[in-house]
Design a protein around this nucleic acid. Structure first.
Length: 907
RNA sequence: GCGUGCUUAGCUCAGCGGUAGAGCACUUCCUUCACACGGAAGGGGUCGCAGGUUCGAACCCUGCAGCGCGCACCA
């Protein structure tokens, strides 16, 4: 801290210390150090997309993980925070393909072919893949970078294949032709979780079809998708619908395509319970190829399947000459026009319905019949039972924070559906299955012999992510080897997982099942779900909206500590975060205040020196005792808040203690001693300040790692510490403990030890109020008179004088009487007079006192009424009763004193 | 439809059974030697609405309304 600048300048400080920590191996976890006295703490990072860049969501998520990790280190634990990235199949392949297309290098991925494209993606990954990990360093994340993993590392890929083969052999993975969610943009199947429902404005088309056996009789059908009419293979009615029962078993002429003779467009009228009476016209067109429910109906009634859509969502020749080749949405409009032209369209009314969208590509998915690989989830029962349910006392090994997410989890686990794990992509883990004629081989290596071809599909990205907690720790699915794996032994199961509730199903639930299946144990003990970062208007932050600030810009502008503090302050447990740059500004201001508070301390005795003296209890002033008790309280609150993952509570406490209590009152009061002439008191004051600041820096460190480290060293705190307890870095200093009973006794801190100072500060505020009410320039030194209720120590008098900015403070006894109309403020400490010697505006003073009296009377009445209620005294706990009685007395004393002043004024 | 969360000062949110709080914004004043990224003093709320439980409700219960999220969905 040489050359102490007036304002904190984070940039150089941050890079310096990060480099130091990393060079010194401070983040590196060593399983060999784990012991009974040094327990393990571990956390695996939710791996960001390898091509991603840091977002505000990452900032929130990783700051929390860093706080937990740093706190655990200060608790003396051996900490592993394991970082890495995810290959993110669709997202990454899309990014690279798009870039290549933009650069004009390809028009379609087939131009390159599988191997060349995958090579390009690897190239891309090597170039840009590390960006987000570098950005995490700028945030201060204390990850063990020596263990950085990627879901397509060779060892990791091996794990994925082994798991596939194992589950295949267990009969849990199977291949089948099913209706799946097809993404016409990415040209791949998706899992149900990758489909999001969105409201879509469109039209409900009502069109007529003629009954073959009853010419001139028509059925009206309502549909939102007329382009699929050529794929209809039946129309269905409810078997109990009296309007239509007589028609069941007859036939209709399908409305499209028109270029096919109507004799070739005859489809049956069938009865099926799926059809509801009161929706639309009660007649359903059945399109087995393009609707999940219709497909089921088709199975029940043995209907043929006509597919009129290509994989990329265009209409085929089977849709008729008028529609062939058209995009599905163009085809929709066109087919409506065709119906209208044929006189078959009754009406088209505006209609809003929910449509499934591909989460990634943001286009409507198509239900599509195709051959895919599916997984029947393993270890479902154990996984379902392991999470503590809210309100239940049943012991459970895993807890969710907030616990309401456990219900969501439970619900999903209860209705769990097989997982479509194959993707028609090139970037990812290739399915380890080979075919030769009708032979199928599943194994880790290409089977011997000629003529085998490997399945072209890759696995869903989450099929690798779900192994993350143990695959990253070197698990190889070999009993002997895994038993000898020191990392797994020490750090699995992990302690905490920090992630967003939006991936409970995608990731959290699947990790739990994989953990039980392959490690025989849960993957983590606590799951903390963050909120979602939104902008001031409550909109989710997204690239497309452009409402997401670049965290790196914020770090450059305000510092990483400021960003961390601001975000933590704004992020209460389980609530979404409405982000506003102002909160980062507040963090910046806070760091600056901390910097200057330390600068003030340094100015007393010079830089980098700690006071030699121990705190001498005999020389403690009421202010010292007050601040020690407030510190004690802050330590309790912050420790408790962190244990409950209440990060915004912790920052609130830190803010209050440091700014409102330490700076605003204690430091200001201490100036009476520091600028005074009593050397012994001064030495003791510095000792107290150093003690408080030393504890404070520790409390702040998990939140503000950079500035606290800088100050820790700059102020010389590191000098006297053993290397492993803060001598080298604040990272390993011990987390502050609340004062023990012995310490409290030693310092003379009983529960009321802070009362004098508290009353003193209250009286100062009242005195300042008097000044203002009397319109006296705050800068003007004036005289005050105090008549203490009890006794006041000389130091208390000095502090009062200092804080009131008084020229002099005269202490008088009960015999003293003030001049008529002298403004006075009263509290438990005594009466504070502002003698104005003839300058008093009697009218104004009367008005002031009258107003004050009214206010006090209201309070008196309020308490009196409560106490007057006979039921109150009878039922209320003694403590509350006493509290009310004491409060009444306080207000009444005040009332009497104000009344006396008013009387004095009138006399 | 089922589930879940929110509704407290102009804004963003704490508080979750015993005197309504913070930060920002606002008003007035202050560049006094830690900090104007600062200091002092203020103004501002019948805690969404209606019932109920209780000596006492922002807090617990019931209902209603508005907003959000998740799941399931009828063409």
């Amino acid at each position: 801290m040489s050359e102490i600048s007036k304002a904190y300048e984070p940039q150089s400080v941050e890079s310096k210390w990060y480099q130091f920590w990393e060079d010194q191996g401070c983040f590196t976890a060593d399983p060999a150090r784990v012991s009974a006295t040094r327990p393990a703490y571990s956390i695996v990072i939710p791996p960001p997309n390898v091509t991603g860049v840091l977002t505000m969501g990452h900032v929130l998520n990783n700051t929390i993980q860093d706080i937990l990790a740093r706190k655990a280190r200060m608790d003396g634990k051996e900490v592993l925070w394991l970082p890495g990235t995810d290959h993110a199949g669709i997202a990454t392949q899309n990014v690279v393909e798009k870039t290549l297309k933009k650069a004009g290098q390809i028009k379609h991925r087939d131009d390159l072919g599988r191997e060349a494209l995958v090579a390009k993606i690897w190239e891309w990954k090597e170039t840009y893949g590390g960006i987000i990990l570098k950005q995490l360093r700028a945030l201060g994340a204390s990850c063990d970078w020596t263990r950085t993993r990627f879901t397509m590392d060779p060892e990791y890929s091996r794990c994925v294949q082994k798991v596939f083969v194992d589950l295949y052999k267990k009969g849990l993975i199977y291949r089948g032709k099913r209706m799946v969610n097809w993404c016409p943009a990415s040209l791949t199947a998706l899992s149900d979780e990758e489909v999001v429902m969105k409201e879509q404005k469109g039209f409900m088309y009502h069109f007529r079809v003629e009954v073959v056996e009853l010419p001139g009789t028509f059925l009206t059908i309502a549909t939102t998708r007329p382009e699929t009419i050529p794929a209809d293979t039946a129309v269905a009615v409810n078997p109990n619908d009296p309007r239509y029962t007589h028609l069941v078993g007859k036939y209709v002429y399908r409305a499209l395509p028109l270029d096919v003779p109507k004799e070739q467009r005859i489809i049956p009228i069938i009865a099926d319970d799926h059809v509801t009476f009161d929706f639309g016209t009660g007649v359903l067109k059945v399109t087995p190829a393009h609707d999940k429910a219709d497909f089921e109906i088709g199975l029940r009634h043995n209907l043929p399947v006509i597919d009129v859509l290509t994989p990329d969502g265009k209409l085929t020749a089977e849709a008729g000459a008028d529609l062939a080749g058209l995009d599905r949405f163009v085809g929709r409009k066109r087919s409506a026009e065709l119906l209208e032209a044929a006189g078959a369209l009754d009406k088209a009314e505006p209609y809003t319905n929910n449509v499934g969208f591909s989460e990634r590509a943001d286009v409507p998915i198509e239900p599509r019949l195709s051959e895919q690989w599916f997984l029947k989830y393993p270890s479902v029962e154990a996984s379902k039972a392991c999470v503590a349910q809210p309100g239940s006392d049943a012991p459970a090994p895993m807890r969710f924070f907030p616990d309401r997410w456990a219900k969501v989890y439970d619900h999903w686990m209860g209705g769990i559906q097989d997982w479509c794990i194959s993707r028609q992509l090139w970037w990812g883990h290739r399915i380890p299955v080979w075919y030769r004629d009708s032979e199928v081989y599943c194994g880790l290596e290409t089977p011997a012999g000629d003529g085998w071809t490997q399945d072209p599909d890759v696995l869903d990205t989450w099929f690798s992510s779900w192994l993350w907690p143990f695959a990253t720790m070197g698990w190889v699915d070999d009993q002997d080897a895994d038993a000898k794996n020191a990392t797994l032994k020490a750090f699995y199961p992990t302690t905490d997982l920090v992630t967003g509730p939006d991936i409970i199903f995608f990731w959290v639930a699947r990790m739990i099942m994989a953990g039980y299946e392959y490690m025989g144990d849960l993957p983590f003990r606590n799951v903390y779900f963050t909120g979602i970062i939104r902008d001031k208007q409550g909109r989710k932050m997204s690239k497309s909206l452009g409402n997401s600030p670049d965290p790196l810009d914020l770090i450059a502008k305000y510092g990483a500590d400021a960003l961390r503090f601001g975000v933590m302050r704004a992020a209460p447990l389980g609530q979404d975060v409405l982000f506003d740059e102002q909160t980062v500004e507040l963090g910046r201001n806070f760091c600056n205040k901390l910097w200057n508070a330390c600068r003030f301390r340094q100015m007393i005795t010079g830089e980098g020196t700690q006071s030699e003296a121990e705190i001498n209890p005999a020389l403690l002033t009421s202010d010292d005792r007050w601040v020690l008790l407030r510190l004690d309280q802050a330590i309790r609150e912050v420790t408790q808040a962190l244990a409950e993952y209440k990060f915004s509570d912790a920052t609130t406490t830190l803010y209050r203690f440091f700014w409102n209590e330490y700076c605003d009152w204690y430091v200001e009061a201490s100036k009476a001693v520091i600028y005074g002439s009593d050397e012994a008191l001064k030495v003791n004051k510095v000792a107290v300040i150093d003690f408080v600041l030393g504890q404070l820096l520790r409390l702040f460190h998990p939140f503000l790692p950079f500035i606290t480290e800088e100050l820790w060293h700059g102020m010389g705190f590191a000098q006297d510490m053993p290397d492993n307890q803060g001598g080298k870095t604040l990272m390993f200093a011990l987390w502050p403990k609340p004062l023990s009973d012995d310490e409290k006794e030693y310092f003379g801190l009983d529960d009321t030890a802070d009362a004098v100072a508290q009353a003193k500060y209250d009286l100062v505020s009242l005195g300042r109020g008097l000044r203002r009410d009397c319109k006296i320039d705050p800068a003007k030194k004036i005289r005050f008179t105090v008549r203490p209720a009890g006794t006041l120590s000389p130091s208390d008098v000095e502090v009062l004088k200092m804080l009131l900015n008084a020229e002099a403070l005269e202490v008088v006894d009960a015999a003293w009487t003030s001049e008529r109309g002298t403004p006075v403020a009263v509290n438990a400490l005594g009466e504070l007079f502002l003698p104005l010697a003839g300058l008093i505006d009697l009218e104004a003073e009367r008005a002031r006192l009258t107003k004050e009296l009214e206010r006090v009377k209201i309070e008196v009445t309020k308490v009196q009424e409560k106490l007057a209620n006979p039921a109150f005294a009878a039922k209320v706990p003694v403590k509350v009763l006493e509290e009310h009685q004491a409060r009444l007395q306080e207000w009444q004393v005040k009332e009497a004193q104000i009344a006396a002043s008013l009387a004095n004024l009138a006399a």
